[in-house]
Design a protein around this nucleic acid. Sequence first.
DNA 1: TCGCAAACCAATGTTTAAATGGTTCGTGAC
DNA 2: GTCACGAACCATTTAAACATTGGTTTGCGA
Lengths: 234, 234
Amino acid sequence: MNYAPENAESTDATLAAIRQMIEAGKLPADGRLPTERELSAEFRCGRRTIRRVLDTLETEGLIWRKQGKGTFAGQPPDPTGALAAEIAPDADPLVVMEARLCIEPALAELCALRATGEDVLRLRQLAQRASQPIDADTAELWDGALHRAIARIAGNRVMLTAFALLDEVRMGADWQKQRHRARSSETKALYDNQHNLIIDAIQARDGAAAFQAMRAHLQALSDNLRVSMGEADT
Amino acid sequence: MNYAPENAESTDATLAAIRQMIEAGKLPADGRLPTERELSAEFRCGRRTIRRVLDTLETEGLIWRKQGKGTFAGQPPDPTGALAAEIAPDADPLVVMEARLCIEPALAELCALRATGEDVLRLRQLAQRASQPIDADTAELWDGALHRAIARIAGNRVMLTAFALLDEVRMGADWQKQRHRARSSETKALYDNQHNLIIDAIQARDGAAAFQAMRAHLQALSDNLRVSMGEADT
DNA sequence: TCGCAAACCAATGTTTAAATGGTTCGTGAC
DNA sequence: GTCACGAACCATTTAAACATTGGTTTGCGA
């Protein structure tokens, strides 16, 4: 028998099979692949063959591996958010919301003092995108972009860093907890209106009004969050 | 026998003893203090007494504690240190002061909602220490301790982290630039008065008043800073 | 020469027990 | 009633033991 060709063929077939396994999305949410030993058993071949296949896929950038951890599809994680991850475990959404109520009104006030005409235009675009009738997740992404833009326009680097920290903790907490939040059409309309009020105040260079408008907006978000959490308790 | 006076005396003596223990530098390199239970046995008193003493020292900023870890002398390690170091070089004191104006009034408002009677007492003590006729540097240290205590009493960890970031940047900027600030006796009296107004509002559980009082205080500091920088320019 | 299996190494994750600050409760002295 | 004390319990953290996993080496056999 001619084993070498058969084996080489098997290697190629294994490569194709694993590649398909990755691209088919038949993986856990974290993109974890079976261990090398499991793959070895599943494909009736040696670990060395599996490793050569994985080497190829890793070179292609399709997977990444870490000793003692595992093999994963996609790109290796970015360690930038390590700081927020340190305090994220304690991140009760209500605490995060309280912090937003402390910081973001002040940012809106600064923003009102410094926003240019172009800045206001961009804020309007973001608010409009957040208001369009898309799914709740996408709306929340645009909402986050709007708030982030206000923080950036505020033009204080220290405050921007503080906001970035808060933002990362918020996203971490939302992801860990509930992200749906039951945005009904009425609350959505309310939020859109509040967004416009905030931008109106910014455009009018009225810092106090921007402060109050942002505070009212976050208060509404907070109330909604508290209600949904209360419902979760009952 | 008259036990109550003896116990009260013993409490003060314990406080003095532990304070000296810390300041004498008779601690391990990491600044770790004995556990509360060990201190309780060593000083022949209850854990509650020890905890009250440690509460005082913690409010003064002389020690920090972490559940499950221990009690340590000095300042708590700040995960924001790397971030602070990154933005400290660009830290215009006016930018830092603007950030303080954004964050600290909100912290004072939260503090007013959550401060206990003991907390108010400690704030009074810190304000009094800051007001005593010592050199400007020492006064500023106690002033910092007061603001830090307010941030801690506010009871929001995310905000406390943001404040710690701000505080580090402030100290870095102050140290790099000018630290004297020319505190005349009049401005000093003004600051002392403002401190008392802030604590009055906190004691009265008046969040809005605490917010405004803190804002006025920081505004005065900002004005003073701007004047001294203006003088430096001319 | 090559693939395979086994064994070992190094890094990582998981589990478990102990230590420690945080909290509550009951008791006793004043 | 008030205050301190002791005890117990809770929540968090650390440390150590153990298992998992990728990385590497060795020996065997076709």
